[in-house]
Amino acid sequence: MIAPEIYLSIPLFRTSKQVVLFVLAAAFFSGCSNPKEVNTDTSRDLETIDLIRERHVLGVNTTDVEMVLKDFSSDIIYLGPGLRPIEGKEALREFIAPLYEIILPRIEMTPRDINIKDDVAIEWGLINGTMGQVGSDSTQNIHFKYIFVYERSSGGEWLITRDIYNEIAD
């Protein structure tokens, strides 16, 4: 904070009222400008999102509940087929933890399009793989389409906030 006397030493200001006016205007216009940067370096964001997707696939394929949950936001909305929406990371943990005790998924995710705008990235693509069951040798092929919404938190971390998918009939 600069003392008003310093402003008064500037020939432009003759009274303290003028100084107060200037400081108020400066604060007002600085506040309006709110210079949060628009992110234009999407290549770095794309790399980050690729890593998140790869980690997600690894988590699913190793049925590692915590690895899968790591990249979901606390307010994740998971919209799986045949299910009511699952909202929140804890609710999702309760859903997938027992599931991962009995299933053996092996998937690949192939993004077909990613749109990034500042703090939101939306990706759609395909999931292909197989689904087995613990204690069984048989597997079935699985094919899905998906949309992932990623959002960048105020701390700069990208997280998956929305996850929806459905089947592709064989």
Partner: peptide
């Protein structure tokens, strides 16, 4: 008058900056 001019310049400058943001 100089003060008003300065304020106007300040306003234009920061408005221009804000247009490049959200």
């Amino acid at each position: 008058k100089p003060l008003i001019s300065l304020l106007a310049a300040y306003a234009i400058l920061f408005s221009a900056c804000s247009n490049n943001n959200q």
